[in-house]
Amino acid sequence: MADEPETFPPSAAHPNGDRPDPVERLDETTEALAVLRDAFTGEEDLDEALQRLAETAARAIVDADAVTVSVLKLDQTRTAAATDALLVEVDEKQYSSDRGPCLEAARTLSAVRAVVGEHRGEWPEFESAAEEHGIRAYLSVPVVLPASERSEAQHVGSLNIYSRTAAAFDPFDESLMRLFTTAASTTITSAQRWQRSRKHIQHLEQALESRAVIEQAKGALMAAHECTADEAFTMLVERSQRDNVKLRNIALALLRTVTRSG
């Protein structure tokens, strides 16, 4: 990664070379985080939470024209959220070539700013795709979930910010985005916790439903064969093992037979 210049050339967005006041930019980020916090319901899955994160981040940085979120999981990298679907191609060019600023941010766990046109030797695929879509500057910031009592800090991906302004994203913007991703990681953690809780509830509901079906089937067998509950259950288990069919499905089939015959 090239050293950050201390000043940036004038651009269409800042014709006098002036950037918004740092306090104003900090206020924008603070307001965006408040929106993210207030809008989060705790019932979103991870991709929905990341989409909300991308949309909110686009509001936090003055020169942001679009934001995507790259998620790294084992050997697979994907774009889980985007405020402009057309720019997902720029991310995907980096994944397929295994190089580019978003992967650099992920591997170094530090913010990476790229001015398009200055990294042709390092990331030619990224450069070509970015130029094709009119992107002039790119800032990628790693998203790291905080450590907990049960797990260490976990890197989940990168927040990628696109701009059509070459002078976009100075070191202050990098600091703002590091602050933003640190605070926003709470949103992702809550989404993951909700997913785990929802799956646990679904498993409990399925177990209770299966138990009810099996109890009904046992009752039908007890009535038909004048046997005990244990004997009826043994019949169901033996049929399940013989036919290699789940016990609940055996019970359901039995109840359907009883219903038709009745």
Rank of each mutant, 00 (worst) to 15 (best):
Met1Cys: 08
Glu4Thr: 11
Pro5Tyr: 10
Thr7Tyr: 15
Pro10Ile: 03
Ser11Ile: 09
His14Tyr: 15
His14Ile: 08
Asn16Lys: 13
Asn16Arg: 13
Asp18Thr: 02
Asp21Trp: 14
Pro22Tyr: 15
Glu24His: 10
Arg25Trp: 08
Ala32Gly: 10
Leu33Pro: 01
Val35Asp: 11
Arg37Phe: 13
Arg37Asp: 14
Gly42Val: 04
Leu46Gly: 02
Asp47Met: 04
Arg52Gln: 09
Ala54Met: 12
Ala57Leu: 01
Arg59Lys: 14
Val67Ser: 00
Val67Phe: 03
Ser70Gln: 05
Lys73His: 15
Leu74Val: 12
Asp84Leu: 03
Leu86Thr: 15
Leu86Cys: 03
Val88Pro: 02
Val90Lys: 13
Ser96Tyr: 06
Asp98Ile: 00
Arg99Val: 05
Gly100Pro: 08
Arg107His: 14
Val115Gln: 15
Gly117Lys: 09
Gly117Gln: 07
Trp123Gly: 06
Glu125Lys: 12
Glu125Cys: 05
Phe126Ser: 04
Glu127Ser: 09
Gly134Tyr: 11
Leu139Ser: 04
Leu139Thr: 08
Ser140Pro: 03
Val141Phe: 04
Val143His: 06
Val144His: 09
Pro146Trp: 06
Ser151Val: 14
Ala153Leu: 07
Gln154Arg: 07
Leu159Ala: 07
Asn160Ala: 01
Ala167Asp: 14
Phe172Met: 06
Asp173Met: 06
Ser175Asp: 15
Met177Phe: 13
Ala184Asp: 00
Ala184Met: 01
Ser185Tyr: 04
Ser190Trp: 09
Trp194Ala: 13
Ser197His: 12
Lys199Asn: 10
Gln206Asp: 01
Ala207Gly: 02
Leu208Gly: 13
Glu209Asn: 10
Ser210Pro: 02
Ala217Ile: 00
Ala217Pro: 00
Lys218Trp: 09
Ala224Tyr: 12
His225Glu: 03
Ala229Pro: 00
Glu231Cys: 04
Leu236Ile: 03
Val237Thr: 14
Glu238Cys: 00
Arg242Gln: 10
Val245Trp: 06
Val245His: 06
Lys246Asp: 13
Leu254Lys: 13
Leu255Pro: 06
Thr257Lys: 13
Val258Ala: 12
Thr259Cys: 03
Ser261Ile: 14
